[in-house]
């Protein structure tokens, strides 16, 4: 799937890396994105949000999508701009249906140990979407202008609606 038009960045501006389905390899790619953010002066709240969302997406790709199979690959595409960070992660798995993931914040699900990754990605990113097969995620975080409400506050209020 190509980058969503709404993300406002042409496909050609994305950096694409394909790495083996191993935590260490994927972690290197993740660190490169974080280093790029830090070199562009992004603050700790943005770095925290991107790290958290990428962590959840990468764990899903390695473990669930690619079933921990080291012969498979994970493909990352990313863009670190002035006011937006875009990350896409694709695995070789059969995909899943995000709409079937139960809401972990419901009282009856609070004590269940699984199922929070997707909602955390949605809380920390401005937009999260999947391809039709469900094996490729696209996420964008738009940066609030200085002095505005923090992303965490904004997202907490959205999540509580």
């Amino acid at each position: 799937m190509d980058i969503p038009v709404e993300y406002g960045v042409p496909q050609t501006r994305l950096t694409r890396v394909r790495v083996s389905n191993m935590v260490e390899r994927v972690r290197e790619a993740e660190n490169a994105i974080v280093a790029l953010m830090e070199s562009q002066g992004y603050g700790e709240d943005d770095v925290f949000a991107i790290k958290l969302a990428m962590e959840e997406a990468l764990v899903n790709a390695i473990r669930h999508g690619n079933s921990n199979d080291a012969t498979k690959f994970v493909t990352l595409q990313y863009f670190v701009g002035e006011d937006r960070i875009i990350v896409s992660i694709a695995d070789e798995g059969p995909g899943f249906r995000p709409e079937e993931v139960p809401d972990p914040t419901l009282d009856e699900n609070l004590e269940k140990p699984h199922g929070r990754g997707l909602m955390l990605m949605r809380a920390y990113m401005t937009d999260v979407r999947f391809n039709e097969r469900g094996n490729e995620i696209w996420m964008m975080r738009l940066i609030e202008p200085a002095g505005g409400q923090s992303a965490g506050e904004r997202d907490a209020s959205v999540a509580g609606e």
Binding site: K51, L52, E55, E56, V59, P113
Partner: peptide, 9 residues
């Protein structure tokens, strides 16, 4: 930093 897997734990 912690992940949803840590929350599950």
């Amino acid at each position: 930093h912690l992940s949803s897997a840590a929350l599950g734990m």
